[in-house]
Amino acid sequence: MTAEPRRPPGPLTRKDFLARLTIAVSALGAAVIGVPFVGFLLAPFFERQPQAWRAVGRVESFQIGTTVKVSFIDASPLPWAGVVARTAAWLRRETQDSFIAFSVNCTHFGCPVRWLPTAALFMCPCHGGVYYGDGTVAAGPPPKPLPQYPVRVRNGLVEIRTSPIPISP
């Protein structure tokens, strides 16, 4: 390839026009395919899924003062999600008709905290985070208390409202 000597500025020649046309229609074609393509790739950035209330059991099946694991189905699971559509929460019946539902995800980096009933502590298996029974940080690196899911009682059923992970309190 030899570089052509630069021509002085003048009226648009046929050659110039065809060169620009080639670039312009190629760019147009690329954009027609590319915009939806990139949009599809980035869709999770923009989609907002509606949340839902999920029943996790009858009120009388929970003992006052005990904390148990409950699991429920995500807000809008895909048909092939299988077991991955499930999410867990630590549910405690505080009084006759008040419940509290903690996220199972450590606020450090999301590992699943375990409830130790006799010690009355939540412990994280990853970096040693520990929480008291009320979800406040007892020890280790977690920066925030365990977040809570909204929970309500409807028609004798305990319902938890799904939330995006990580839950921002």
Binding site: P44, P77, I165, P166
Partner: peptide, 16 residues
């Protein structure tokens, strides 16, 4: 938060 959504491809894990 958007980046987290991008990694999980939604609010939480799933088929997607």
């Amino acid at each position: 938060p958007s980046l987290a959504r991008f990694l999980l491809a939604g609010d939480t894990w799933g088929g997607q």
